[in-house]
Amino acid sequence: MHSRLVLASEVETRHLAKAMLPHLKPGDCLLLEGPVGAGKSAFARALIQQQMAQDGTVEDVPSPTFTLVQNYETSRGPFCHADLYRLSDSTELIELDFPDVFESAICLIEWPARLGSLKPERHLLVTLDIRAEPEMRNITLRTFGQGWEWVQELEAATQFPTNVA
């Protein structure tokens, strides 16, 4: 199952994050794909900030490019925001607490191809790309494994143009 949404701005990205958030729980893994500048970090930041706003907490959500992994404790459970771009081989993932973190946290993984054989079978693949029109971007959601039925409901929740194939 996959959905393709066309989002017109970062504000709409945040609305999508807000609609997705209530469904997320530890053990859920979102793999964020797309070229540099597509908005992967912005999407992850929107999810984490939305959760913090609900918790009434205030904390930095910096880019994980240099630190590789940023962990956040929230009332929904731990969030793990990772950027695997700089990794050279998947053995280094063990040092970063993969794959155990897939069980314990809500994972937001940028450059997931680096996961190799550690990629969890059950995951939500979020593919982002910018469109030629100013501010516009495509976000495609593809589900793998069980427990993602709610993704189909996002169309109503977000009020954005959505194509479900």
Binding site: E10, V11, E59, V61
Partner: peptide
């Protein structure tokens, strides 16, 4: 100081 990154009112382009 309140963190500058991620404070609710200040999204990346808010």
């Amino acid at each position: 100081a309140a963190p500058m990154i991620g404070s609710g009112k200040k999204g990346a382009k808010a």
